[in-house]
Design a protein around this nucleic acid. Sequence first.
DNA 1: CTGGATATCGCTGGGCAGTTTACTAATTCC
DNA 2: GGAATTAGTAAACTGCCCAGCGATATCCAG
Lengths: 385, 385
Amino acid sequence: MATTGTDLSRMREMNQLSIVWALRGNPPSTVTELAGRTGLSRPAVDVLVQALVTDGWAAVEEPGAKSVVGRPARRYRFRADAGHALGIDIGVHKILVMLSDLEGNLVRTVRRPADPEADPAARLATVDETVDELLAAAGMTESDIWGLTVGVTGPVDASGRTSLFTPLPGWSTADPAGHLAGRFRCPIQVENDCKLAAVAERWKGVAQDADDIVYLLAGIRTGAGLILDGTLRRGHGGAAGEIGALKAVRWLDAPGHLAACPGVPASARPGEAAAWVFQAAREGNREAKTAVRRYTRDLAVGVAALVLALDPEIVVLGGGFSRSADIILDPLHRELTKHCLRLPELRTSTLGDESVALGGLRLALDDIDDRMLSAELAAPRAPRG
Amino acid sequence: MATTGTDLSRMREMNQLSIVWALRGNPPSTVTELAGRTGLSRPAVDVLVQALVTDGWAAVEEPGAKSVVGRPARRYRFRADAGHALGIDIGVHKILVMLSDLEGNLVRTVRRPADPEADPAARLATVDETVDELLAAAGMTESDIWGLTVGVTGPVDASGRTSLFTPLPGWSTADPAGHLAGRFRCPIQVENDCKLAAVAERWKGVAQDADDIVYLLAGIRTGAGLILDGTLRRGHGGAAGEIGALKAVRWLDAPGHLAACPGVPASARPGEAAAWVFQAAREGNREAKTAVRRYTRDLAVGVAALVLALDPEIVVLGGGFSRSADIILDPLHRELTKHCLRLPELRTSTLGDESVALGGLRLALDDIDDRMLSAELAAPRAPRG
DNA sequence: CTGGATATCGCTGGGCAGTTTACTAATTCC
DNA sequence: GGAATTAGTAAACTGCCCAGCGATATCCAG
């Protein structure tokens, strides 16, 4: 930890930054309020915030005759619309793109269906179309986007590829980052979908209060994303959370218990079959209940392995099957009790299928913050990848 | 992240701190060298380092006629002996206490045998005697110790107890922190032995270059300690790494394969039996080799679970059996290849049975740094727990 | 033994950032 | 309309770092 020395100019930069942090996420603030939040004196805040205004980071709101005594104060707000971020979920069945401003306020969402059998080129073409539609609807161009994250299935290596494995056909050689770099000059991240969903749960989901989270994707696929000490755990090769690959953990076969349940309509697609079984179990069907019990039993081994390895505060149940959490949660809890030393809290995701794109947004915003705000504070401008 | 504003005095403090970091771990340095390391100007460093001298953090070394041209420079050194730290390993068979200065230089080590069957009171009495002997030999008193860490077996909760389980008889209700707080007024930490060993491997062992480490304690007991992103991973309830509790992971039974090997002398104690088997396997004994293969097969399941969950850079093989790494490493590597997606590097610990106390030292020193150096820089004084 | 080369030491003036203090401006309450 | 309250602004003040200069100490060549 080679701390480097500081001089006056750096100090001013830091104070300007501290004002940005005090402005962001708060309603338009007066100089006095900012002075209170930052610990700086009023004159100092005044000078700094005016510099932020001329730089384009902040905007003045003239006082709107508030019902307070004393002279009404000018209010300053962070110009969250100075830049925007994209979260792109490249799923098996859908492409979902979300647009937010610098404060993370959602501006627009566009969703398109995707053919599960589509090859990478076709899938990326759909991504392009979806992005086109969203940008057009929002009245923006590529240069308005300061950062974006792509969520894909399978572990993502340092180059943004999913070389180890992925359920998307042909995707192990696809290069989504390279493809998008042709359009976007901003930093582009590619990340595993479970990891992004975990990030989303901590940002806007049911795990906002926790620093140590195991996110469980329970659906036709089974996977996990880890947040430790409040930051996403990627793993040295990007493959953290892939406990399902262990043979003793039967995550690959687990959903098969549901599909193999007697009575499932022969015409049902995988997702429908599971939904049928959960509904049947809800209605008391004995065989369905057995299938669910077998499923959760297999699911629990992997969760227990993660819980024992990491001792998290919360396990979040997400993915398509989390809609049937009322059926899954109890047997899962019982199974985990058998395996674990210390049982973490079990919560059910409420973000639905937007969690991956949301987590992508958060990661893109974090990256923007790292580049724009921590280093130096120039005029607002899209960072270059 | 509510960054707080900064003023001149804080800036000076930060610069003084950066000089402390530039002094520590380096040979006595000239003002010019410090200026180069910190990026500050020579006059600034001069003033700050002189303040450090009057505060007692630094000492002047008059120039010793060096073979350089030009006027010989005064050299300043960090007064690492201003305070000291203790690392205490409360093991099943031994009590080991290590003393270091603020730079982590070992000053003295004292070891005493412990009765495996001793109750907590007797064990803590042995700890007291060992500490007494060490302090007397070093010519110090309790007030010279600024921080200490106790290593024990079993997961440690927030209060410093091992309430979940521990192989030390009666220890689940023992309170080593409370006991030592009667003597020492400095901060006292209690931590799991595997976790401390992991810290030691990153500090002075074979994993100094890695940020993501799984430490495997392979001995009569089996356990693990995790370092992620360069910091010890404790877990929300202090039970991270306890993957051995999973039934599918046969860590409890694994060493039994060695003890049960045909041909082991009936009189051998557990540790001796394992050593006998490893030696026999080395000499080509077929049954011993089978026992070792069975042992590593069981061991590998748990390691694979940790590797798949965390995707570390390095797995360090430590514990008593690591002396026979030549026999274990190959079959372990083969088994891991079967289970894992991406195989981390496998290394063997070289720290021996001092790793727990060493890791305790590192944790105590980190705590001292956090309290003394990051916050404010008063005159050197032992922090209060 | 002496003078030059070299690098540190110690000092001084300049600039900058934030604080304190004081004063003026704008609004509400009575 | 005046008192009370709060915001905006300007000045003086303090503290810190930096650039630059002369003084100092040592080595080395002749």
